[in-house]
């Protein structure tokens, strides 16, 4: 029997080329940063990154599921804000303070908004990008009209959320400061495992791949497109709702007009992880690596002596080159096998 690599044994599949490529970029980048600035190599940096990146990591999982189903969703940040903010407001109106309640309300609202996306996409056969552009504005606009856009600073943020944001799994004390691994890490892990389980271990998850692979074939063998799409967009909405609470809790600051505008960045991160817009393809590891790259640039360019204003330049370049490599290969392959593709 041939020897299998550690990766194969752990993941039961070979590593995709995009994953290898991203891993290489991450390693090279880390080496460069570490050489330039050894301070980078600290648990503090790692814990910081985990804490700051956990929100977008959760969103990225939702994006991945949507991309695998062959769609593209740009409304998830709006859903995160709308469900997070609405549930906090609801709790304030009801006059009590319970983390579980706020999370539950947020994920329910998130899933409900996601189902609106799914219904529009399914019944009117509309391009998913344009539908979700529309719903993003509509959802957020409606929230702003109904609830206003009042911000809450740490004093007004519900105590349970503040506690949630500062809960740590493990705290390491150093000479002068102490840093801790946020509880968010556990939640992200749970979400990753849940997504993996849903996608790879449930029939519903397999139908997501199936409709992304070939929607017509899927309906021919009796897969309900509506049911699968409802699942896809509700799940994305569910994760967004969860992220909304994590986001507000982590910042200890509730601003209902934040976050929106970062959706394309998160989609980009998932896309360089190897998820194709044409559906059926994409891996969780790829999405995780993509988010790690975004997060690395966001939090470590300082170590290179570059300000935060260089983030987009770095990420944009990496994104462009990655996409270039990925699609140029596809192009050569198509040329060879005489596939006259029109993207």
């Amino acid at each position: 029997m041939q020897r299998r690599s550690l990766f194969r044994r752990a993941f039961d599949r070979p590593m995709t080329s995009m994953e290898k490529y991203l891993l290489a970029i991450i390693l090279v980048y880390i080496v460069i940063v570490a050489v330039k600035n050894p301070q980078f190599f600290s648990l503090e940096t790692l814990f910081d990154m985990i804490r700051n990146g956990s929100g977008i990591m959760i969103l990225a999982l939702g994006v991945l599921v949507v991309l695998i189903s062959g769609g593209i969703d740009v409304s998830f940040t709006a859903i995160a804000i709308v469900s997070g903010y609405t549930s906090v407001r609801l709790m304030k109106v009801l006059g009590f303070d319970n983390l579980l309640f706020v999370i539950l309300v947020a994920v329910v609202i998130g899933a409900a908004l996601g189902s609106i996306n799914a219904l529009l996409i399914h019944f009117f056969r509309l391009p998913t990008l344009i539908v979700t552009l529309g719903t993003a504005s509509a959802f957020h606009g409606l929230m702003a009209i109904v609830l206003g856009t009042k911000t809450y600073t740490a004093i007004d943020v519900p105590q349970s959320m503040l506690d949630f944001g500062s809960t740590s799994l493990l705290t390491i004390s150093a000479e002068r400061s102490q840093y801790s691994l946020s509880v968010f890490f556990l939640i992200v892990l749970a979400c990753i495992v849940l997504t993996w389980f849903l996608l790879y271990r449930t029939m519903l998850g397999r139908t997501v791949f199936a409709i992304g692979s070939n929607q017509e074939s899927a309906s021919r063998i009796g897969i309900s497109l509506l049911r699968t799409k409802l699942f896809v967009y509700c799940y994305s909405g569910f994760l967004s709702g969860l992220m909304g609470i994590i986001y507000f809790s982590g910042l200890s600051y509730i601003n209902p007009v934040s976050l929106i505008g970062t959706e394309l960045m998160i989609i980009a991160a998932v896309v360089i992880g190897g998820a194709k817009l044409t559906g059926g393809e994409g891996t969780i590891l790829g999405a995780v690596l993509g988010i790690i790259i975004v997060q690395l640039f966001q939090s470590t360019l300082v170590f290179l002596g570059l300000g935060a204003s260089w983030n987009n330049l770095f990420f944009g370049s990496v994104l462009m080159v990655s996409l270039g490599v990925m699609y140029y290969r596809q192009r050569q392959l198509n040329k060879r096998s005489l596939v006259f593709s029109s993207n």
Partner: peptide
Amino acid sequence: ISVPPILATLSTMILFAGIGMA
């Protein structure tokens, strides 16, 4: 390069903003 237009312009959108920002 045959990058789908959505992705090509998504990446350049970030890049152009990045250049401006830098």
